Structures are given as C-alpha cells and as structure tokens.
Amino acid sequence: MAYIKARRGVSPRQIKLLLLVCMLAVGIPVGAGASGSWLAAAISVEFAFLGLGVGVLIVQRLAGPSMRKALAARGQAYEQALTLRITPEALVYDLADLTMTARWPCVTDLYQTRKYWVFLVQSSAMVLPRRFFTTPEAERDFIVEATSRMTDAARARSPDAAKFVGN
C-alpha cells in the first residue's frame, strides 16, 4: 500500500523518514539542554532509535496473525479466490464475494512492485499478485493487453508497464 499512497502524495516511508529526522533535530538539542551534555543526548536518541526498531519488528510480527484472527472473527477467510479479467470495456476484479468493474478511462496508471502489478482506478487500487502468472510470457501478454486498452494519458503515467512490455 505504500506505493499506492506514494502515488497520491507523501508515502508512509517519507513520513517515517520525516519523523526520524524530527526525532534527531528535536531530541538531541532538548536532551542536551536537559542533561547538559551533547554526548549523553546523542546516546539517548540512539537508544530511542533502537527501541523504535525493536517496536517496528514486534508490530510486523504481530500484524499477520492479528489480521487472520480479525478476519476469522468476522467469518472471512484470510486467503480468498481472486481473478482479474480484461474485457474490451473494462477491467474486472473478482475477489471472493466482491466484484469491482473499472471502465478503461477510469484506470489512471499501472505500475509494478516487487511482487504485484497495481492498477490505480481513480483513488482505488486493484492489486494483482505477480505469482499468478505461470510464465514471464503470460505476464507480459497480460500487461500488453491491459496497456493496449488504457488511455494514452494512463499509459504515459505507467512507465513500469512500458518498460516491462519493452523487454
């Protein structure tokens, strides 16, 4: 989702970097003023970074199991069947009991992450795992077909797709 959010403005990674810089810019001078030592302040901020890192690791480890439990409590499976179909008129995204249809003029861009292809449809995302493709040729054929139906403006905003198709 970070990639999607980055396309809309400031990404979560940029926000994290900004927060870390602020921790340094505020933490060290305030710590130095309170303790009277720049060294003690710098060391305490370094330990704050270490604590932040440990906290991030703990949250990452707990996020998956807690998501599974939350879905199970609502009677939903963690893994659900997904299909993404290209029709002459629209891109059709079927995820279990949910169907989204996006007419091609609504598809604003297509980009690739390490594990996914992401179609941005106005302010929503249709995410297609790259593991769905059995061969690189099948993946390329799908992307060629999708980009051929997108508007010129959407293709211009999709350099990842153009580069992939060019290979």
Rank of each mutant, 00 (worst) to 15 (best):
T108L: 05
S37R: 09
L62N: 04
G36H: 04
A6L: 12
P159Y: 06
G31S: 07
D94N: 04
P88G: 08
V165G: 03
D152T: 11
F119G: 06
K163A: 15
G31E: 02
A2C: 12
A2L: 10
A161D: 02
L91P: 05
S123V: 13
T83E: 15
A63E: 14
R7Q: 14
D97T: 07
I43G: 04
R130Q: 13
M67D: 12
D152C: 03
A63Y: 15
F119W: 06
L120W: 00
M100I: 05
V56L: 14
L98R: 08
K69T: 14
V10R: 12
G53F: 07
T113G: 14
L17Q: 07
E137G: 06
T83C: 09
A138F: 03
A42R: 03
V118F: 06
T113F: 09
I43H: 00
Y3P: 04
G75D: 12
F164Q: 05
T101Q: 06
V144D: 05
L57V: 13
R130C: 02
T83R: 10
K163G: 13
C22H: 00
L19P: 00
A63L: 14
G64Y: 13
T108F: 02
L18G: 14
Y116S: 08
C106I: 07
S123H: 11
T113S: 14
L24T: 09
R155V: 15
F119Y: 12
A162S: 12
Y3C: 04
Q122K: 15
E79P: 01
A25R: 00
T87W: 06
L19T: 08
G51E: 05
L39K: 09
K69S: 14
L120I: 15
K163D: 13
F142R: 02
S44K: 04
R13P: 00
P105C: 11
G27P: 04
M150E: 02
G33D: 01
G33N: 01
R130E: 01
S37Q: 09
A96K: 06
R131E: 00
V26G: 03
R157S: 11
G75I: 13
D160F: 04
V92T: 02
L82K: 03
M126G: 03
R155C: 14
R74F: 06
C22A: 15
D141E: 12
T147G: 01
F164P: 12
V59G: 00
R13V: 13
T113H: 10
D141Y: 02
A146V: 03
Q80A: 15
G9Y: 13
K69C: 07
Q76V: 13
R155L: 11
A32V: 04
L91T: 01
S11K: 05
V30G: 00
F142S: 01
L52A: 11
E139I: 05
L110K: 00
K69Y: 07
L120T: 11
L20S: 08
Y3K: 08
M23I: 14
M23N: 04
G27D: 04
V92P: 00
V59F: 10
P136T: 08
Q112S: 12
Q112G: 10
G51V: 12
V107K: 01
Y116L: 15
I15H: 03
G51T: 05
D141S: 11
I143K: 02
I28V: 15
W104H: 06
V21S: 06
R85L: 04
S123C: 07
S124N: 15
K16H: 10
E145G: 03
A6G: 15
V127T: 04
L57Q: 10
A34M: 00
R68C: 09
